[in-house]
Amino acid sequence: MTDSREDPHVEDVSVRRATFTRLRVRDVRVRAADLSGVRVRGAELADVEISGELRNVVVNGVDIAPLVEAELNRRMPERARMRPDDPEGFREAWAILDRLWAGTLARAATFPEAALHRGVDGEWSFVQTLRHLNFASAAWVGRMIVGDPSPWHPLDLPWDEAPGWDGVPWDRAARPPLAEVLAVRRDRRAMVGRVVASLTPELLASHVTRDEPGWPRLAGFPLKECLHIVLHEEWEHRLYAERDLNALEKED
């Protein structure tokens, strides 16, 4: 018996220790998925695009994760600078991001503001991306490092699959003026810049604890990892923003 369904919407489903035989999955979009431990045998993978964090991804006996990392770093040499280990490395990484984002913002300024509120292929709009980066800086630096238990601005935007927390703003449908979002972003980037400028080896090796209600709520978390998360968010979301600006340019 063959059960064929077109355009179903499947959400919040957990499948564990299952076996699928003669499964046909075509023209499907998978978002925010945990595919850890998946084993695929005898499959045909053609015209497949995967974007995500890769660890121990073995294809035909080859772990492709290190190969992908090496190729991405070859294409974008500055990408390798986003996992620094010492204070000067963090200062260099932050300066790189400042320069790259300045170019992206200058490019975005050439678009009508309405276009910057338009998502591409179900993704966040350019303005929503900036709002999310404001949230990430507030969470991992403002709360975890600086110690403000509630560092939020009403326009901050958590990730779409976040569970939600009391007191943390989350208005995905808001359409604030770009200038207002950029003003918050300048403040948040200045806050991160001050932390990065003040880094010492001792501070970088320290751990932080925030046990107040809200998010993140972590004990003994490495301060270095808080900053790594912010660098990763800034790097990846700029690439997403450039990708979507490319698509918007073609639409117009």
Rank of each mutant, 00 (worst) to 15 (best):
G122T: 11
L155D: 05
R175A: 08
N134D: 14
S150V: 11
R189D: 03
A139G: 03
L178M: 08
P158F: 04
E202Q: 15
D166F: 12
P149M: 05
R186M: 04
R189C: 00
D156W: 00
V181Q: 02
R188K: 15
G122S: 08
V184L: 03
G164C: 03
R189I: 03
S125Y: 13
E202W: 03
S125A: 11
P169M: 06
P163V: 11
A138W: 01
D121Q: 14
E161W: 14
W152Q: 02
A139V: 02
D187E: 14
D156G: 00
A162G: 10
P176C: 06
D171I: 13
S137R: 15
W159R: 09
D166K: 15
P163S: 09
W152V: 01
R175E: 10
W152H: 03
V127S: 10
V184Q: 12
F135G: 11
S137K: 15
T200G: 06
R172S: 06
R185P: 00
G167S: 10
G142K: 06
P201F: 05
D160I: 09
P154S: 12
D121A: 15
V146L: 00
A138D: 04
F126C: 02
D187T: 14
D171F: 11
P163I: 09
H132K: 14
R194F: 00
A162D: 15
L182K: 13
W124R: 08
G122W: 10
S137T: 15
D166E: 14
S198M: 02
M191W: 05
A183N: 14
D171P: 01
R131Q: 08
W124V: 02
S137D: 15
R185S: 08
R172A: 08
A173R: 15
P201H: 13
L130M: 08
T200L: 01
L178P: 04
T129F: 04
N134P: 07
W165E: 03
E180H: 10
S150Y: 12
V184E: 06
D171G: 10
H132D: 10
V196N: 11
D160H: 12
W165D: 02
A179H: 04
P201K: 12
R172Y: 11
M144L: 01
R194K: 11
D121I: 13
W140D: 09
A136D: 12
L178C: 04
R131T: 06
I145Q: 10
W124G: 03
P177E: 14
E202A: 14
W165F: 07
P163F: 06
A162M: 09
R175K: 13
S198K: 08
P169S: 09
L178A: 07
A174C: 09
R194P: 00
V181F: 00
D148V: 10
V192L: 07
L130Q: 13
R186S: 09
V196S: 12
E123P: 00
P151I: 04
A190W: 03
F126P: 00
A190P: 02
R185Y: 10
P154Y: 12
G167D: 07
P169D: 05
L182C: 06
L155E: 04
W159S: 07
V146W: 02
G193F: 07
S137Y: 15
R143K: 04
V127Y: 11
W140V: 05
V195F: 08
